[in-house]
Amino acid sequence: MANPTPIRWGILGAANFALGAMAPAIHAARGAELVAVASSAAAKVAPFQAFSPATRYVESYEALLADPGIDAVYIPLPNHLHVEWAGKALRAGKHVLCEKPIAMKAAEIDDLIALRDETGKLISEAFMIVHHPQWARVRALLQDGAIGELRHVSAEFTYMNDDMGDIRNRPETGGGGLRDVGVYTFGSVRHATGAEPIRLAHTKAETVNGVDTYSYNVFDFDGFSLSSLVSTRMGRRQSLRFHGADGEIALPSPFNPGLFAQSEVHLIRPDKTVLSERFNGMDQYVLQVEAFGAAIRGQAEWPWPLEKAKGTQAMIDDAIASLDAAVSGT
């Protein structure tokens, strides 16, 4: 079978994460080609050109969106700009992969859904974990009843970032741990179980400079609960455990497999024997880009539509509202 015509990608902004993760993934992915990066200065694009020499510097976001030689755009801009530029990209006829969270509020996603349906273009939050095979394995184990009735899920994602100049520590750019990594502790559980929360039962939180730096939330689902801890003022930790009536499923590196720790899924039986499966050599960012191209070509169904992103954002909205109340004492 002949190789498909590559999806030609442009990137809005020379963000560090784009340089370190997504641009190399686009460059490495089958059926994808990085053709342009828009930035305020050509010098910011030079590091992209070091590994992708054919990548062009474009002087503005508007010019990149107007380029007929670009099929899809990746948006790594600060959180508060996501909806605005995702909408502009759709109106310009581009497919859109936007960093998480794709919106500041769940209700904002409705406008993007309407634009998606109007334009017929693929748009998604860049929730890369759903493309990693360890999560396909977790979903299968849960669906097969490998741990019996699910009763509780515990999820943690913490790291240290006390740089007050960082956009993740600024309220005006949509900073805070919940928006940065709460999407993982919340969204991964929804993805794995296919279930939606019934209510937010408990919150304990701390803020610095108007953004959450510690947020512990308990959500009730039908039949099980979720305890989620996210923090930007603690040592690096990632952990996720599904606790069932007949055992547990544990992931030592649920969100950055192969980077934070080895990608493994452990099935822990009642007699404490452990069945471990390892997933080596998988780059979830490359897998995401390849899956995006396959969805554009109609070769595969896209696993994380905007409706799913909206469900996670609703949980983040609830947690932030509860956080505000907890911090103010109301």
Rank of each mutant, 00 (worst) to 15 (best):
A15P: 14
N16C: 10
A25L: 11
A25Y: 03
H27Y: 15
A29N: 02
V37D: 07
S40V: 15
R56Y: 08
E59P: 12
Y61L: 04
A63P: 14
G69R: 06
L77D: 01
H82E: 07
L90A: 01
G93C: 07
C98A: 10
A103M: 07
A107Y: 04
I113P: 00
K121R: 04
L122Y: 00
F127A: 00
H131P: 01
P133L: 00
W135D: 00
A140F: 05
F157C: 03
D163Y: 12
G165F: 12
P171Y: 13
S188K: 06
R190Y: 06
G194S: 09
D212Y: 11
V218F: 13
D220A: 08
S227T: 10
S227D: 07
L229E: 06
V230S: 00
Q238R: 06
S239Y: 14
G247E: 02
P252K: 02
S253Y: 14
S253W: 15
P254D: 08
P254E: 01
F260V: 14
Q262S: 15
L267D: 07
I268Y: 06
F279K: 05
F279P: 10
N280C: 07
V286I: 01
L287N: 03
V289M: 02
A295V: 04
W304R: 00
P305G: 01
S322Q: 07
S322P: 11
S328W: 12
